[in-house]
Design a protein around this nucleic acid. Structure first.
Lengths: 242, 242
DNA sequence: CGAATCGTTGAGGTCGCTCAATCATAGTGG
DNA sequence: CCACTATGATTGAGCGACCTCAACGATTCG
């Protein structure tokens, strides 16, 4: 069996905060991978959050359901992301998590996690950095949904996704594999799947991106950036040197 | 001079994580209050984030401006909130902060803050908890803007604000002082000020809330909760006991 | 082959926006 | 004290972006 190259470690290594102690703990936390079938719910809203999950492979979906059946997707966690960190810190989960594809995750108990953080302040800082990055993404989504037009919003979303995947080593300069349906996209950017369909067609007609058969392909990333008025930088921000 | 009763300490004291060491550091961080005049910009977007600010008195506004002049408000920080924590952790600020009213803040350098966190893991945990609570609020806003109708959205926003202020000791069961204009409300919930005006009238006509002369008054908080389909709990969530 | 899921397209409706006034209040300088 | 200005609240009329409802086609899977 090939030893797992931790995507989380890779992500957190962006800055040299991880010493041997931190690496050892992370390795221990990630040592027992679980397989989760696509479609499984990992955490339900309002459930007591006794566990977090480190994603090692596959795509997940963090979302909130409303009483009338509407859904808002908050994030699509991928390899290297931590699911349910907030559920552990606050006592109950404020939203649900499902496996979007087949998933490999490491299950971490809340106590174990908090324990590790208390013991290793540098790990704490690294995790706080990761959480801040996540929050920056949520803020960006809020701006999108609140103040950007539909087409711009979709363009922005696809760019962000591409950027994230590329940083995680899961996408190239001009394309990436994407298991999302148009319903997923719609629930992420606050639109109807039907409308998303028309917008994707528009982007295709403008020869900017295509999304077909599970592959997003950028044909004119620069033009797409112009359309989305893209200001990257919130994804690969470094930690303040200390 | 009356010694300042720290709102931040009050907030973080919800759980018994703060020992004498943590309290001493916090007192030191907050020992030099600055006055900031209403309207002043504290941090500009894309500015290098070398400082954070602990709000001791007054209201601030965290927002993001778009190229076409649109604005999305992310949060209205009040006493006990930390401004620009993310700007310090990531290296640059992903949005701007302005003083909405006259403000009293403690200015904390990034290094000083990170230093304190490294030295006191329990403080780290407490701050991480506070950051998680903030993120939960942003997520709730995202859900609102993405998937709730305008009236429900406004109702939800007013309820949340009331709850927050009450927890901070700045509001009563049935009213609170609120320096926000209808433009602020609009930019917070992703609507037009004009439309917000009509919605406020609607809420007034339904005898649920009034917002007049800087005071929000709940006339039927229960009814308002029903309208907003309010599920509180993300504001006063406790930390997982450890 | 039937069932389920997802994508695609059309027609019509509506929620919230845009544009354009009017009014109230407070502050400012002459 | 009175223009004069600036900010915020309020209301009306018309419009358009996005939604709803309703099909139908394509693909996958048991």
């Amino acid at each position: 069996m090939i030893p797992y190259e931790s995507a989380l470690v890779r992500k957190l290594s962006t800055f040299n905060l991880l010493g041997p102690g931190e690496l050892a703990i992370l390795a221990k936390l990630e040592s027992r991978p679980h397989r989760v079938a696509a479609g499984t719910e990992l955490v339900q809203e309002h459930q007591a959050g006794h566990h977090a999950y480190i994603v090692q492979q596959g795509w997940a979906c963090a979302y909130k359901l409303l009483e009338d059946g509407k859904r808002q997707v908050v994030d699509f966690p991928i390899a290297g992301d931590i699911l349910g960190l907030r559920s552990v810190l606050l006592r109950t989960s404020d939203h649900s998590f499902a496996a979007l594809t087949n998933l490999v995750v490491a299950k971490v108990s809340g106590h174990q996690l908090i324990d590790s953080l208390m013991r290793l302040p540098k790990l704490s800082a690294a995790i706080l950095w990761a959480a801040s990055r996540d929050e920056a993404m949520v803020v960006e989504h809020l701006v999108s949904v609140g103040r950007r037009g539909a087409l711009q919003r979709l363009a922005h979303f696809l760019l962000e996704l591409g950027e994230r995947l590329q940083l995680a080593g899961l996408g190239s300069e001009d394309s990436f594999a994407c298991p999302l349906s148009q319903y997923h996209l719609a629930d992420a950017i606050g639109l109807t799947a039907i409308h998303v369909n028309r917008l994707l067609r528009e982007l295709r007609d403008q020869k900017l991106v295509t999304f077909r058969a599970g592959v997003v392909r950028f044909h004119d990333r620069e033009g797409l950036r112009r359309l989305a008025v893209w200001h990257g930088g919130y994804l690969d921000a470094k930690l303040l040197p200390c």
